[in-house]
Design a protein around this nucleic acid. Sequence first.
DNA 1: CGCGGGTTTGAATGAGTTCAATCACGGTGG
DNA 2: CCACCGTGATTGAACTCATTCAAACCCGCG
Lengths: 240, 240
Amino acid sequence: MKPLRNRVGHYVDLGQESFESLSALPHRIETRRPGEEIVAIGETVDYVFVIETGWAIRYRILDDGRRQIVNFMLPGACFDMMSMAYAKADHAVSAVTEVRLRRLKSADFLKAVSMRPKLATAFWWVAIQEEAILREQIVRIGRRSAKERVSHLLLELNRRIAAIEEKLTDFINLPFPQALFADALGLSVVHVSRTLTKLKAEGMISTSPEGIEILDRDRMAEMCDFDSRYLHLERLKLVD
Amino acid sequence: MKPLRNRVGHYVDLGQESFESLSALPHRIETRRPGEEIVAIGETVDYVFVIETGWAIRYRILDDGRRQIVNFMLPGACFDMMSMAYAKADHAVSAVTEVRLRRLKSADFLKAVSMRPKLATAFWWVAIQEEAILREQIVRIGRRSAKERVSHLLLELNRRIAAIEEKLTDFINLPFPQALFADALGLSVVHVSRTLTKLKAEGMISTSPEGIEILDRDRMAEMCDFDSRYLHLERLKLVD
DNA sequence: CGCGGGTTTGAATGAGTTCAATCACGGTGG
DNA sequence: CCACCGTGATTGAACTCATTCAAACCCGCG
């Protein structure tokens, strides 16, 4: 529950009670192995899922195998809040790492939230942020070069992780293969690799088996025109 | 109000009363000339806008002039429902054609909606649809070829217009230059032109100064893998 | 040791861009 | 009525960024 609390409580002071009411809701904890599906395409979901630990992706596979990742889901992400009776999932969700999930009935969740204005406001903010992230993704893959795309996404993930862990560091632990980057950014794996090599050569980042270190955040942000404001993290007490 | 009513009432039987309460809300009607800005980037908006007539775009301009259109907004679109006190617009909104807008105070709107469960549900559905459209846009520009992109967007706009006008025709009135297509799809104007020419040659569409006619919907949908379900128009009584 | 997943590198290819010229068309002013 | 714009569409040629294919490499693991 901690990550969700961080995420949701980020925008609104929830106080003890209203958040407790969420965690008290009947639920099941499930786990998924890396690569396992959480929501299949076409499935009718009447659950809300909350990621407790691990990474997941929302994506779409085209007939000939091309894959587009729509967004990354980090701990605290809650998804399919939107789905109800008739809505069929138009995208699939899969675990990237081992994932621990909390699953609640949509109806319970909606009722709990709608009864508590503070909670409702908090989730409203979460939805604002999520839409902004989608829009930014559109700009990224629509009009940015490979180098900009990769850098921009790295900086976004870095910030989003920072928001969860409540401290901003220069090291990004990326527990997944470059193919995910490729499919998120609309690039080929080969080109992602080349681009990372170039970024290394320019002294922006350094890589190690464990992840990627950001060496020159300012130059990098400047280069790829990253402005973290769309993440709406202002209220976060971070070293900026 | 008609377009909004169509759009919102699409999913939920609103009944007379609950929708009336929306139209009765204090508001201003404004108009914008083609190209005029409706919401500037960075602006703090505490209004909800509803497009009564005309087309608008939500977009982002990068420093060097590249532009990415995030989505098209048709009559009945309501936007910046999400914005509140602190949120600054991270994208601009402009009129494409002459646009007539209804502007209401966010607070009034929110209150009206939250007091009426049916309205709230209806707007919930609108939000679901809008998110799905954004996701589809991501897949489109991330992993589809130019030909697929153009066709897919044409079919989407065709359907969305059909939903507003309550009848599906093969003729799409596109009152804007190809540059908009280019900037929506992450392509150059030149290439959009070439692609349209190719589609014409293949007998999928025909163009005239007034717009574009879809000649072979099925083949086109098949070719670009267009599946209208993400628009959630099932309940619409359309010839399909 | 050899296998397998992921990364890197090179060379060839290709889809889409850029630049520049031409065309089509509607509006304006002489 | 016609010359002259200006905006947007189209076409051609050169170019470039990114893809594809294929080989090599790296490394952890059975």
